[in-house]
Every structure is written in C-alpha cells, then in structure tokens.
C-alpha cells in the first residue's frame, strides 16, 4: 500500500497571466505540468503520490477565470476557477439554478468550498463529482481554451471514464456555460453518503423537469446519476418513460427502476454495488417525486 507523504513533494509554481501562457506551458510540459485552481484534489493526490507534477500552473488570476455572469439569452457563465461558495451565494445562481446550489453545497465543507472550484470538480472526472450531475442535467457547455482556440464541449461528452475527460493536450477548461433552464423548470439533487452530510457520494441522483407540450405526458424530465458508473451519467431510459407519461407514482417508480437498471456500480470501501443499485432507485424516485410536486405547485 502507498502511504501519504507528510508534505507536498517538490514542484515549481507559476501564476499565469494569459491563456496563451497556460497553453504554452501545458504543451511544453505535456506530462508533468498540471493546472492548479483550488488544489483540494491535486494536493491530496500529490501527497499520496498518485500525481507527481513538476509544475503547477495557477490560473485563478487569468481574466474571467473566477467570474460569474448571467444573461437570460446566453445563460450562466461560471469561470472554471470560481470557488464553490462564490457560486452558491451568487444571487443569480440562487434565483435560477437552485439545483446547482444544492449540488455545490453537498461538497465537503464550507472552508473546503472556499478553495474548491466547479472547474476542478468537473476536471477530476470522478464518478462521484457532485457538480457534474448539475452540469449534465442543466446541459452545460464546458469551454476550453487550447492551441486551436476555444472549444465548447457538451457536458454529456466531457466525461470519458474515472479521471478521464475530453480535454486535449494543451487545452484547459476556462468556463462553464449553463443555459437558462427551460420555462417552468424544477430540479432536485439528492446525495447519499455515510455521514448525514459532507461525505463523498455512495450514490447520488439529480432530476429536473419542465412543461413541454410536445411530450405526450406534457413534461420533459432529465435524470442524472453519480457514483454508480465509470462516469456521472444521464439516464435517457428513465427520461423517456416520464415523457411518455402519465406522470404518477407508478411511472416515477418505473423511471427509478430504469435508473437502477442503467447503473453499473462497483464494490468499494464505501459501499457494495448491490446497495448502490438499490439506492439509485430510492434516490431517483425521491428526486422525481419532489420535482413532480414542485412542477404541480407551479403549474
């Protein structure tokens, strides 16, 4: 077994001032340069030797990297290095993206979230990344700067496997663009950990819905799961059941069953695959029932 070191190994630190500088450094050191935002994951992995970068590139002071802006047309733009507390207390986020606030506040603790960033959370590409569910459900675009200019990657195409994402050499995430949710949208994020709050997810589920006359049920739903597959996933099978309708306890249950079927969890020290599968059903059903209740209230 590998034991964590008492301190951080040696590395150099540079505070980048332009995107071009970052891209240049990343290309120059393809194997041993690492982007550095909040460090909450990087530090832990450096201490236990899982990651041994020779250079950390701090991008927090790049223009726009910690900015949060909103425009009803283009939606919410979150700088990749904006910290989670800044996101969760932003008035626009509170007003239009309560689901995002829920997923952010589910992460660890307040002091950790002063450092942790949504960009970092997404780039860890951990199956249990809480904000990844919000990104999937809200159909965020992840914008990367790179040698060939900016590139926007749909959240659904970003996660490739545990710790693997779609960024190419020389690219780095600069912002997360989250469209304004459809009219009448309601969403809910539910996470199950070992402690009541603040643990990594054993399993998590997010659901959202909105009225849509083109759907037979009159509503479109979205469902996403965490910690139960190599990446955070959407569950189109569950979404289809609810689009078909009618929406009631039975179809919510059927959709939750579809989520359970879509989950491909593993056994690990946090939970067994068997328990995780069962929890996918519980959490998905609860999220759907709550969303449905909110939709009916609004309707």
């Amino acid at each position: 077994m590998e034991l964590a070191n008492p301190g951080l190994p040696n590395f150099d630190y540079v505070r980048a001032t332009t995107p071009a500088e970052v891209i240049g450094l990343l290309l120059q050191h393809p194997d041993d340069a690492r982007l550095f935002m909040g460090g909450t994951d990087v530090f832990v992995r450096m201490r236990d030797g899982a990651m041994t970068p020779k250079l950390l590139i701090d991008v927090k002071r790049l223009p726009g990297l910690t900015e949060i802006t909103y425009d009803p047309e283009t939606g919410l733009h979150i700088g990749a290095a904006a910290n989670m507390n800044a996101i969760a207390r932003h008035p626009v986020v509170l007003e239009h993206y309560p689901l995002l606030v829920e997923s952010v506040n589910a992460v660890a603790s307040y002091p950790l979230r002063t450092r942790a960033t949504m960009g970092g959370n997404l780039c860890n590409a951990s199956p249990c990344a809480d904000t990844a569910l919000a990104a999937l459900l809200l159909e965020a675009m992840l914008v990367a700067a790179g040698p060939d200019g900016d590139r926007a990657i749909p959240a659904g195409a970003f996660f490739l496997g545990p710790g693997k994402h779609a960024l190419k050499p020389g690219e780095f995430l600069t912002r997360i663009e989250i469209p304004t949710p459809p009219a009448g949208w309601a969403g809910r994020f539910i996470k199950l950990g070992r402690n009541a709050h603040g643990d990594l997810a054993i399993a998590s589920a997010a659901a959202g819905g909105y009225p849509d006359e083109s759907a037979p049920s009159g509503y479109r739903f979205r469902v996403a799961l965490g910690s139960v597959a190599p990446t955070p996933i959407r569950v189109p099978e569950a979404e289809a059941i609810l689009a078909q309708g009618p929406i009631n306890e039975k179809t919510c249950d059927a959709a939750a069953d579809a989520a359970r079927a879509a989950a491909r969890p593993i056994d690990d020290v946090r939970a067994s695959a068997k328990y995780r599968k069962a929890m996918v059903k519980t959490l998905t059903r609860r999220a759907l029932v709550e969303v449905w209740a909110m939709l009916q209230k609004e309707g």
Partner: peptide
C-alpha cells in the same frame, strides 16, 4: 483499506 478521513468517517456535527 481506509486509513484516511476520506474513508474512515467519524461523526461530524451533523451526525
């Protein structure tokens, strides 16, 4: 298999 606070959880104030 779990020698860290990440995977050896103890009660926090919310528990």
């Amino acid at each position: 298999q779990n020698p860290s606070f990440v995977d050896y959880r103890i009660a926090t104030v919310v528990d």
